[in-house]
Design a protein around this nucleic acid. Structure first.
Length: 746
DNA sequence: GCGTTACATATTTTT
DNA sequence: TATGTAACGC
């Protein structure tokens, strides 16, 4: 394939631009990935740049993998390979750098990478050690503060102390860092922070890499944080060929330290940078783009862009207001099903997006009920499962016995008689001798009574400790002897009796054991790799990476996870105040602007059809609540919208039944004309009054057929909302004149 | 030291 | 809801 084929003038310019700093501002669907991959291929094929002199950075493994595949396909003979190129995520690149140069760092090359849960447990430990109240200083908020500091390249000593709380956070930060150092462990932020430190403090190292990388290319530049930007500057310093692609309007990771103003800084730092705007959109209909533009134009401080498409106006955007969150999920699934039945669309054409992961549950249930397969990105991730984390902790312990986090996690899992007392003792002994608890254990395990630590323990506790230490010692020997991953895996499970522990023959136990088996399968597939590589691969996978592209089914995913993807038909659900925009962003204009960008990202994922869905009533947990329509909906011009479903006024909080009544009045509910699918026949209709032998009288909110059963949602005067199966519940119609507005509680 | 239970408590997005 | 933790009894 010709690398320069099928490029518009701006894309062509970006692909072939000469040396120096280049900023490509690429609107959604403007061929950003195409530009990036062709640029790399162009450098190699046309300019003869050897792949090993190229550094290309992405945010997700998936993006990296995709880029790798596409570029490889374009590389011409005689090379045909990208051997030597550094193409990966920021974090993977840093991990690689740090392992290579570990002698310049206070870490060993076999350091482990902590995930967020582990970070939090270290914070909790630090708080406890410092006698701080974890109610007052929430681990999550302290962690966020520390993370922000690291993103801004601030070490504990540099942490700004403006008030007492800062002082406390600084002290926790200090202790936290010590624990990590002693554990030979790094968190995600450390990977970046230490990489920058390494390059800054070792000019020879910096020069080595900066000279090597003739070209540095970056995807999603608007999502970089300070540390990442600094790293890019350090690595491109020698040749100055820094090629970044991004879009301020798609910056949605502010909470993680990303700062879209890096785009502005870039222009200041490289005043001669070439700036290229990609504005032609190849993805969406003009209707979708118009709506997206109307939404994003309300944000200040951005480079105005004029996205245009030659795909024509396309269909109007459907706006559906459901009675409640069940109705919302049902609408989504019904609509998709009708398309599928009609044969005019396939499963993978659809995506259902939401703000928070919790929203996926009702949707999943609806899909399950309809017996429609779906694929889910992220959420209760496999690697987050307790049993999986346990086994991984064992593996990490085998690789790095200094890892206190993992040690503390599994030292008494399954229960082996090492309780709080013994644990505190162990830590004391370790501290006294200036070693880590893991080392004490190992020594006890290896030498038994000969160990100098033996006497420090009293009673039989030392026996249990020594037993466990002997296990770890055994695993370590296996690792040192280069035993294959599955062998080590099985040995560990057998040694600790893990199956007996998780699989209690209950359904849940079976499920857990399944997960362990799944992990073992993974180890088997990766048996060519070292334990360290295996663990690092797992530590750095993201949810987005778990998307299985081969399944032909609708995708359920958060708006964040949707970035970079596209679908023929997109549902954005939960368009309620408090959810999108999220309530936590309410009082912060910057956060609110980001909510808007998030919505913008969702809108621009759609190629052909867009459905905006919300629920008039939603239960976050416990009690259902009335919701207000998202303010963002107001910004979409009416002529782009086609309303369906019930119609509600804005905001009827505290008006009791009125909300329910209003929501039960169908405003327009004609089935989509374009869809020949069968409209199920129901016995009950919304607004109809019914009587139930136990609950008394109520009003039908919604009725639909699922799996051949008619499901009726009723609001009873006595008990409120109930979902009934029509054939089971002895529901009677109540024929009555007049408006039923009286009676009932809200 | 272990296991059960009651109770509280918090819920955004993730490399 | 679902998860964690504090308290209790064994």
């Amino acid at each position: 394939m010709d690398i320069l084929e099928n490029l518009n003038p701006q894309q062509y310019q970006a692909v072939t631009v000469g040396s120096g700093a280049v900023l490509v501002l690429a609107g959604p669907g403007s061929g950003k990935t195409r530009v990036l991959t062709r640029r790399i291929a162009y450098l190699i094929n046309a300019l003869g740049v050897p792949p090993y002199r190229i550094l290309a950075v992405t945010f997700t493994n998936k993006a990296a993998r995709q880029m790798q595949e596409r570029v490889t396909a374009m590389i011409s003979e005689p090379l045909r390979s990208l051997e030597g190129i550094w193409l990966g995520t920021f974090h993977a690149m840093c991990a690689r750098l740090l392992r290579r140069e570990h002698e310049r760092l206070p870490y060993r090359s076999n350091f482990v990478i902590l995930d967020e849960g582990e970070q939090e447990s270290v914070i909790k430990r630090a708080l406890k050690e410092l006698n701080l109240n974890d109610k007052l200083y929430r681990p999550s908020s302290v962690l966020a503060a520390i993370s922000n500091a690291k993103n801004a390249l601030l070490l504990p000593a540099d942490y700004p102390r403006q008030n007492y709380r800062d002082e406390v956070v600084a002290r926790v930060y200090e202790r936290y860092s010590q624990i990590l150092l002693n554990s030979n462990a790094l968190d995600f932020d450390d990977l970046l922070l230490w990489a920058v430190k390494l390059l800054r403090e070792n000019p020879d190292v910096q020069e080595k890499y900066a000279r090597r990388f003739l070209h540095v290319l970056v995807d999603e530049f608007q999502d970089t944080n300070q540390a990442q930007y600094e790293l890019l500057k350090l690595l491109s310093a020698a040749h100055g060929n820094l090629f970044v692609v991004g879009d301020e309007d798609q910056s949605i990771y502010r909470w993680r330290g990303a700062d879209y103003r890096n785009v502005l800084r870039f222009e200041q730092d490289f005043p001669h940078a070439q700036k290229i705007l990609l504005e032609q959109n190849y993805r969406s209909t003009q209707t979708v783009l118009d709506a997206a533009r109307a939404v994003i134009d309300r944000n200040a401080h951005r480079t105005p862009k004029f996205l245009f498409s030659d795909r024509g106006r396309g269909e109007r955007i459907v706006f559906y207001e459901a009675v409640d969150d069940y109705g919302e999920a049902a609408y989504v699934v019904d609509t998709i099903q009708q398309w599928l039945v009609s044969g005019r669309a396939r499963g993978s054409d659809f995506a259902v997006m939401y703000r928070t992961n919790a929203q996926s549950r009702l949707l999943e249930e609806a899909f399950l009920r309809a017996r429609l397969p779906y694929r889910l990105v992220g959420a209760q991730r496999f690697y987050g499962r307790r049993e999986v984390k346990d086994v991984l902790a064992y593996l990490r312990l085998a690789q790095n016995p200094l890892d206190e986090v993992s040690l503390l996690r599994v030292i008494n899992v399954p229960p082996r008689g090492i309780g709080d007392k013994t644990l505190v003792n162990l830590q004391l002994v370790a501290q006294h001798n200036g070693v880590s608890p893991g080392q004490v254990l190992l020594d006890l395990g290896r030498k038994g009574e000969e160990s100098p630590y033996w006497e420090a323990f009293k009673g039989r506790s030392v026996l249990t400790l020594a037993d466990f230490g002997a296990l770890i010692a055994g695993w370590q020997e296996l690792v040192a002897a280069g035993a294959p991953l599955p062998v080590l895996f099985d040995r560990i499970l057998a040694d600790v009796g893990y199956q007996r522990y998780v699989d209690d023959q209950s359904e849940e136990g079976l499920d857990r054991w399944e997960n362990v088996q799944e992990l073992r399968r993974l180890a088997y597939e990766n048996q060519e790799r070292t334990l360290a590589e295996f663990l690092e691969g797992i530590a750095l996978v993201s949810d987005q990476d778990t998307l299985n592209e081969s399944t032909d089914a609708p995708t359920l995913l958060t708006l964040h996870a949707a970035k970079g993807l596209e679908f023929s038909q997109v549902f954005i659900t939960g368009l309620d105040e408090g959810l999108l925009p999220h309530s936590r962003s309410r009082d912060d204009p910057e956060a609110m602007a980001e909510e808007r960008r998030l919505f913008y990202v969702g809108l621009t994922r759609a190629k052909d059809r867009l459905y905006l869905v919300r629920a008039a009533q939603r239960s976050s947990f416990g009690a259902p609540e009335y919701t207000e329509a998202s303010r963002f909906l107001d910004d979409i011009p009416d002529e782009l919208l086609k309303r369906e479903g019930v119609r509600l006024g804005r905001a009827m909080p505290g008006t009791g039944l009125r909300g329910v009544w209003a929501s039960a009045l169908r405003w327009e509910s004609a089935p989509q004309k374009s869809s020949p699918a069968v409209v199920p026949v129901t016995t009950f209709r919304p607004t109809q009054r019914v009587r139930h032998p136990t609950y008394g009288e109520g009003i039908v909110l919604e009725s639909r057929i699922e799996d051949g059963e008619e499901l009726v949602d009723v609001h009873f005067e006595s008990v409120g909302f109930k979902r009934l199966v029509a054939s089971m519940a002895r529901l009677e119609r109540v024929e009555r004149q007049g408006n039923g507005m009286s009676g009932g509680a809200g």
